[in-house]
Structure formats: C-alpha cells, structure tokens
C-alpha cells in the first residue's frame, strides 16, 4: 500500500484539494447565512450588552457591567418564562409521545393520512390558529359551557395559565411529534419482538427499549419546543390575556419602548445563556450512564 501511494503524491494531494474545495462549496451558503444572520448579530448583541444607552435611546460604546447588574435585579420575567417553557415542553411531550408512537407503529397504511391531518392546520397562519382558540375556549363555547356546568357565570378558561399551556402545546406539537415519529419509525420493529420474546411485557418493553431508542428524538423535540417557548409571548398575550410578564415582553419593552438597547441586549444574552444551560443540564441528565457505553444521545450513533 505504502509503495503504491508514494509515486503519486501529486495526484493524491490534488484530489484532496479538490475535495476540500467541494466541502467548502457545500458549506458556503450555510456559512454565509450563519455568519451574517447569527454570528454577527450575536456579536452585536454581546457588544451592546456592555455599552450604555444613548441620550435619545439606542446604544453608545462603553464598557460597563451595569446592564447585567440590572438584569440580575429583575429576574422575575426569566423565571416566569422558564416555568412556562418547562411546563409547556413537558406537556407537549406527554401529548406527542403516544401520538408519535401510534403513528409510527399502529397507523398502518393510514399513516400518510394521519401525518397529513396533523400537518394541515399548520398551513394556516400561526396567528389565525391561536385566535381560533379564543373562539373555541371563549364564553360562547367551551368556556361558557363549563361555566354553565359549574354554575359559575364568571368562570373562564381564557386568561388562565391553562389556556396558555394549551396554546403552547397546540402550537408546538408538530415540532415534538416529528423528531419522535422519525426515530420511532426508523426503529427496528424486531427489537420490540425481541424484548417480548425475552420476557418483557408491553410496558417493560416500552420503558426499556422503545423509550431509550426514541430518546434522541425526544431530546431533539424537547429542545426544538423549549427554545421558542422560552421566548414565547404571543400565545400568553392572546390566550393568557397579557396577564403575564415574560422575558419576551421585557425585551419588547426594552428595545421598543425604553429604547435601552444595552439593557435589552444584556437580557438577550442572559436569555441565551439560560437556555444553553438548561439544555445542557437536560442533555446531561438523559445521557447519564449512556455516554459511558458510547450510546449517548448526542454522541456516537450506530453506523
């Protein structure tokens, strides 16, 4: 092998250069995209967060940690958002898991139809869908109906944490279902038979085989759902009647109303950090013990 390779270093080198060029070409559009729409803006946000508010609003270059000090003093919106996103992610998972499992394993030839039914509502604007819940849960319909049953004319579903959670679950369900569905669908069905064959019942099989194998999809789905829920403020505004003051509200207030870009930037940086930490802890948690055996969720996978 070695002797065969030595006489042709030029060709090998040329081939390598060519392949590097191709790699570069393939990555170029995404790199430009990320550079200008993610890295650069993030850089600005970080830089702004150490600056000072200009006299008429905006930003003047400076170096101060005051903004972060102020963020730390008013942590409430962060906690509110964190609570909401955690509960929302968990509930979405509870709804999505059985549904994805059904789709992947039991829907049979109607699978395509079910997936279509699941997707169709999302062809409508997000806003229209959220508004629709105003009607469904409103006093003319479900809210009034339940109020009638309870004999409480002032009963309402809207403007409650429950309504917000419902809106969150509804709005982000597909983001959770599809990664789960894909991992479950790809899963070798004979694994389930093997488990039953080895003496594990339905629930034991689900717990020991299906769930661990679906875990990468579950983690992906949770992250996909958690991140936008952290920044969510439209659903709480519409279905929650704007009664909550979330990090999203705080950012809008800082940037548009107070025109205090440095403070808003500091909050944005803390928000991103909060999400990164939460996600890291989460991934670490589900990976406990798995990483050691090389089957970690975000680690190596079978070829």
């Amino acid at each position: 092998m070695a002797t065969a390779l030595t006489p042709t270093p030029a060709r090998t080198g040329g081939g390598r250069a060519k392949s590097a060029l191709l790699t570069g070409a393939l990555l170029l559009p995404a790199s430009i995209w990320y550079l200008f729409l993610l890295v650069l803006p993030m850089g600005f946000v970080v830089a702004f967060s150490f600056g000072e508010k200009a006299r008429n609003g905006g930003y003047t270059p400076a170096f101060t940690l005051d903004n972060y000090g102020q963020v730390m003093k008013g942590a409430d919106p962060f906690l509110e958002s964190l609570k909401l996103a955690t509960a929302g992610t968990f509930l979405t998972l509870l709804v999505a898991l059985p549904l994805a499992y059904f789709l992947a394993t039991r829907a049979g030839s109607r699978k395509g139809l079910f997936v279509l039914l699941l997707v169709i509502p999302f062809w409508t604007s997000f806003l229209i869908r959220t508004y629709s819940w105003l009607i469904v849960l409103g006093r003319g319909n479900l809210g009034g109906f339940i109020g009638g049953l309870l004999g409480d004319p002032n009963f309402r579903l809207l403007g409650t944490p429950g309504a917000i959670l419902l809106g969150l679950v509804y709005g982000y369900l597909p983001l959770m279902i599809f990664p789960l569905y894909v991992t479950l669908e790809r899963m070798d069905r004979s694994l389930i038979e093997a488990s039953k064959d080895l003496g594990a019942g339905r629930w034991a099989t689900f717990r020991q085989i299906t769930l661990p194998i679906a875990l990468p999809g579950l983690v992906t789905g949770s992250i996909l759902v958690f991140i936008p829920m952290m920044g969510e403020y439209v659903i709480p505004q519409i279905l929650g009647y704007g009664r909550t003051f979330l990090i999203g509200n705080a950012l809008v207030l800082d940037f548009l109303e107070a025109r205090n870009w440095p403070l808003g930037s500091a909050k944005a940086v803390v928000l991103i950090a909060t999400m990164l930490i939460t996600i890291s802890v989460y991934v670490w948690f589900v990976n406990r013990g798995r990483q050691a055996r090389g089957v970690g969720v975000l680690g190596a996978r079978p070829p």
């Binding site: 004979s190 694994l191 488990s195 194998i213 875990l215 798995r290």
Partner: peptide, 15 residues
Amino acid sequence: VNTVFQHYALFPHMD
C-alpha cells in the same frame, strides 16, 4: 421460548 432474529435485533443502546 426464545428467538434468534434474522437481523439479530440486538438492542443498540445496551452493551
């Protein structure tokens, strides 16, 4: 009764 499956059906997340 135990089965040896055609494609082994080994659990990928276990050693």
